[in-house]
Simulated assay, not measured.
Amino acid sequence: MSSNADGAVVLSWGAGRTGQLGNGTTSDSLSPTAVTGLNAEAVTKLSAGGVSVENGFALALLKDGTVRAWGDNVAGQIGNGTLIDQTVPVMVASLTGIKDIAAGGTHALALTEGGRVFSWGDNAYGQLGHGTSGGERSKPAEISGLTGVKQIAAGADFSLALLTDGTVRAWGRGIHGQLGNGSRATSTAPCKVGLTDIVAIAAGAHHALALTTDDTVKSWGYNLHGQLGNSSTESSTVPVDVDWLEGVSEISTGAHHNYAKTSDSHVWGWGDNQYGQLLEGDETFDSDVSRTNRTAPVEIPRLEGVQFLDGGARHGVALTADAVFTWGDNSHGQLGHGTTVPGYGSVKIPNTSIRFIAAGRGGGATYVC
Rank of each mutant, 00 (worst) to 15 (best):
V317T: 11
S249P: 00
L309H: 02
W268K: 10
T320A: 05
S3L: 12
G129H: 03
L46M: 03
T147H: 11
V35M: 04
D64N: 15
T18M: 06
L303Y: 13
A93D: 13
T320Q: 02
A93C: 04
S94N: 15
G271N: 04
H256N: 13
Q86I: 11
K348D: 06
L61K: 06
G254M: 09
G226S: 09
H337V: 00
T87I: 10
W244T: 13
G104Y: 06
E234P: 03
T82M: 00
V117P: 14
Q86C: 12
T18K: 09
E304L: 07
L279W: 14
I201M: 05
G105W: 07
E304M: 05
G271E: 02
L278E: 07
T216V: 05
I354K: 06
E299K: 10
T326H: 06
R17P: 03
A15M: 07
A42I: 01
F356S: 05
T36E: 00
I78A: 08
L163S: 12
E234Y: 11
S144H: 06
I78Q: 06
N181K: 07
Q178C: 12
S2E: 10
A318H: 01
D85I: 14
L279G: 14
R137S: 14
G360R: 03
A318I: 01
D310W: 03
D64R: 01
A34W: 09
G24V: 05
A15D: 09
G363P: 11
G271F: 02
A102R: 02
L335D: 01
Q77P: 12
P301E: 00
M1N: 13
S249T: 14
G360I: 09
T262I: 07
H315D: 01
D286Y: 07
H225D: 13
D286A: 14
I152W: 03
R137A: 14
D264L: 08
D272Y: 15
T320Y: 06
F325V: 15
T82H: 03
T186L: 12
A161C: 14
T295V: 10
N181Q: 08
W270T: 03
W270Y: 10
A318T: 01
A358V: 08
R294I: 06
A255Q: 01
K348M: 00
P301H: 01
T25L: 05
T320N: 04
G281T: 05
N330L: 09
G311W: 08
F308A: 13
G50D: 03
N80K: 02
A15Q: 06
A365Q: 15
G328A: 11
T132L: 01
E136S: 15
T284W: 13
A189V: 15
T147W: 01
W220V: 04
K139E: 11
H225K: 11
G174I: 08
A110W: 13
G172D: 05
N230W: 13
H337L: 13
G247H: 04
E54I: 12
